[in-house]
Computed example of a mutant assay.
Amino acid sequence: MISVQQHDFDVGREYQRLIEKNASDGAVVMFTGLVRDFNQGFNVKGLHIEHYEGMTERALEGIVNQAKERWQLGNVSVIHRVGDLQVNEQIVFVGASSPHREQAFDAAQFIMDYLKTQAPFWKKELTQSGERWVDANIKDTDAANRWQ
């Protein structure tokens, strides 16, 4: 399942979706990203995320398909929120099931690394100094490059 949405998600419900009708997988790995209060030297009060509808979903589908080609996966779920978010709110969920834990861990990390660098999202932080667009982070690019 891939979803780009404004409303929050329930991690427990997403876990149930990953194990539903899936008795052959012995591992589920999940990651949830939150809005933090400090980023790249700025105190953050909130976050505004924009995307290009259609293009973003296709990019996420491409990332998930690449993961499925690399690892034996059962169910995969990617949820990314857009709109206005407050500190400590959930931004992103990535979940992967697999017969073995190594594949589920690797796939979830791969999806997050590629999501951070290849999915068309634009993030504007609301800081004490005003609004600022978030630049790409070198560590995210380095993390994605290790999968090549």
Rank of each mutant, 00 (worst) to 15 (best):
Gly26Phe: 08
Gly54Ile: 10
Lys45His: 14
His48Trp: 15
Thr32Tyr: 10
Thr56Gly: 04
Ala23Arg: 11
Gly54Tyr: 09
Gln16His: 11
Gly33His: 09
Gln6Phe: 14
Tyr52Arg: 02
Asn43Ile: 15
Arg58Val: 07
Tyr15Met: 09
Ser3Cys: 15
Gln40Arg: 00
Val4Tyr: 01
Glu61Asn: 08
Gly46Ala: 01
Phe9Gln: 11
Asp10Ile: 09
Gln40Asn: 07
Glu57Gln: 07
Gly12Glu: 09
Met55Arg: 04
Thr56Ala: 02
Phe42Ala: 15
Val35Ala: 05
Arg58Lys: 06
Lys45Gly: 13
His7Tyr: 14
Ile19Ala: 06
Ile19Lys: 04
Leu47Met: 11
Gln40Glu: 09
Val4Pro: 05
Asn43Cys: 15
Val64Glu: 01
Tyr52His: 05
Phe42Arg: 15
Ala23His: 05
Leu47Phe: 06
Gly62Gln: 01
Ala27Phe: 08
Val29Met: 07
Gly33Met: 11
Ala23Ser: 12
Thr32His: 02
Asn65Phe: 06
Asp37Tyr: 13
Ile63Glu: 08
Thr56Leu: 05
Arg70Gln: 13
Phe9Arg: 11
Gln72Lys: 08
Val28Phe: 12
Phe31Cys: 09
Gly46Asn: 01
Glu20Cys: 07
Met30Pro: 06
Glu14Tyr: 00
Gln16Cys: 06
Asn22Phe: 10
Leu47Glu: 01
Arg13Glu: 14
Gly46Glu: 00
Gln6Ile: 13
Ala59Lys: 08
Thr32Gly: 10
Ile19Val: 11
Glu53Ala: 08
Trp71Asn: 02
Gly46Ser: 02
Val11Glu: 13
Ala27Trp: 03
Leu18Phe: 01
Asn22Lys: 02
Glu14Gly: 02
Leu18Glu: 03
Met55Leu: 11
Glu57Val: 09
Val29Phe: 12
Ala59Gly: 00
Asp37Pro: 10
Val44Ala: 02
Gln66Ser: 01
His51Gln: 02
Glu57Pro: 06
His51Lys: 06
Val4Gln: 01
Ala27Arg: 03
Ala67Asn: 10
Lys68Ile: 07
Glu50Ala: 01
Gln16Pro: 03
Glu69Thr: 13
Ala23Glu: 10
Asp8Lys: 04
Val11Gln: 13
Tyr15Arg: 12
Tyr52Phe: 04
Gln5Leu: 14
Arg13Gly: 12
Gly26Trp: 06
Tyr15Asp: 05
Val44Thr: 07
Asp10Ser: 11
Arg17Thr: 14
Val64Asn: 01
Thr32Pro: 05
Lys45Asn: 13
Ala23Thr: 11
Ile63Phe: 04
Arg70Val: 12
Gln5Glu: 14
Glu57Met: 08
Gly46Phe: 00
Gly33Gln: 07
Gln66Met: 00
Asp37Ala: 14
Trp71Ser: 02
Arg17Met: 13
Arg36Val: 06
Glu50Leu: 04
Gly62Leu: 00
Ala23Lys: 11
His51Ser: 10
Gln5Asp: 12
Ile63Val: 00
His7Trp: 14
Glu53Phe: 05
Leu47Ser: 03
Asn65Leu: 07
Ala27Lys: 04
Arg58Ala: 00
Gly54Met: 02
Asn43Gly: 15
Leu47Pro: 07
Phe42Tyr: 15
Trp71Pro: 01
Met55Ser: 05
Phe38Lys: 12
Gln16Ala: 08
Asn65Met: 09
Asn22Pro: 08
